[in-house]
Simulated assay, not measured.
Amino acid sequence: MEVVTVATDLNNAFLNRLLIPSCAALGFDLMILHVDKKEFRPRDKRLALVEYFKQHPSPTDLVIFTDAYDTLFIRAEKYVRETYARFSRSVVFSGELNNWPLGAIGFLIENGPPVRPFPYLNAGGFIGAVGDLLELCIKHPKPPSDRFRILRDLRIHDFDTDERYGFSDQYYWTLVHLLETETIAVDHHAELFECFSAQVPPTWDVQVTLDINEFRTRGREADSYHRERARLEERLRAPSGAAQLHFASPITKAVLLDLLDQGRLPAWLGAFDARDYPPPRVQRMTF
């Protein structure tokens, strides 16, 4: 089974110290699509995947996409295949606590009440056959916002969600999922993917920005760092039942790398030693 990720920085610490070693230790074939683009945006991950899938030799091959700079794996292919087979849809996305980036607007376009504990799609991890994923991307070449009345109405009032959120591949996949519910499932119970992000208010909270800015200014002395460290250490006391773990947020990533440096990661997360494994495959992508 192939694990595919997209990266502009091949020297990223999380990629090299956590994602690459975890894939190697579990026997995953990791392919890094290297995009050498100065103004790379999250939505460009999809463009790289489309180009790669178009040249893939087998449309029936099962692949896992994972974010490059904030994810790792703790369970191997056998577990992934067996768990994936229990889903009734051919494509499965990670779930998360937050309807990001749409926030409260996203609640209005959801199909029914939230399925907890992870109600909303997270684009940092998904699995499906190459052909199915490529077909979805070709069918929806851009975010299908015109298919949602509330988003069309907002555009009339000069609130264009494509302009505001079009930078995000998660915005795109959220809309596609809501239109393709016969094909796409969300892993609401973290059986394959678990996102460790904290829950944030559904409307934009300036405190989120303040916390990140404080961390970037004060580093490990920032109160926001200590709060996130306490939260994450508490969460890591209990093992995850998923295969891929996602630590979105610059503060969360920094905490996890610090715990690694200090030898304080729990044993259930596994061992991370890149010296014992061959390097992953890397393919240069241009588009």
Rank of each mutant, 00 (worst) to 15 (best):
D61I: 11
R235Q: 14
F287V: 12
F87W: 08
I184C: 03
H189T: 13
F73T: 08
V176F: 05
I184N: 04
A222M: 11
F193N: 03
L15V: 02
L108C: 03
P114Y: 05
Q170L: 06
A185I: 00
L47F: 13
P113Y: 14
E221A: 12
P279K: 03
E182P: 04
A85G: 08
R43D: 15
D61T: 15
R149K: 10
Y171C: 09
Y277E: 00
Q170A: 01
F65I: 06
N99W: 15
L179K: 01
F196P: 04
R89G: 10
T286W: 09
P59N: 11
N99K: 11
V255R: 06
L49R: 07
R86T: 14
E182T: 06
A68G: 01
D223P: 11
D44F: 10
P101G: 04
V6G: 04
L151F: 10
L26G: 04
E163Y: 15
R41H: 14
F126W: 12
L179M: 03
P266T: 05
F126P: 07
F167D: 09
T181N: 12
A123H: 00
R155N: 10
P278C: 01
R46F: 10
V6S: 02
L121T: 15
F148P: 02
T161D: 02
A248W: 15
K37S: 13
S240Y: 05
L133C: 09
R218D: 13
G124T: 03
L30V: 01
R89P: 06
H34F: 06
T5D: 06
T60R: 14
P114L: 03
D258K: 11
P59W: 08
R229M: 09
K45D: 05
C137F: 15
P144V: 03
Y171K: 13
G131P: 08
G95S: 03
I105R: 09
P101V: 01
E110D: 11
G106C: 08
A198M: 13
L175P: 00
F53S: 01
R147K: 14
K78E: 15
T217L: 10
A104M: 13
S58N: 14
T8I: 06
S22I: 01
L102N: 10
A243S: 07
K253R: 15
H189A: 10
V35Y: 00
L18D: 02
S249R: 15
R75D: 02
L97M: 12
E214S: 12
K45Y: 04
I212S: 13
P59R: 12
G263F: 03
R264A: 13
L260F: 13
T66R: 00
T209H: 12
I105P: 10
R164V: 12
S145I: 07
H157W: 09
I20K: 00
G124M: 05
P119D: 04
K45G: 06
P21F: 07
A68V: 03
T60L: 15
R220Q: 11
P114F: 05
G241V: 08
L175D: 03
W100F: 13
L108Q: 07
G270A: 07
S197L: 11
G125L: 08
E191H: 13
L151W: 06
D29P: 02
R216Y: 07
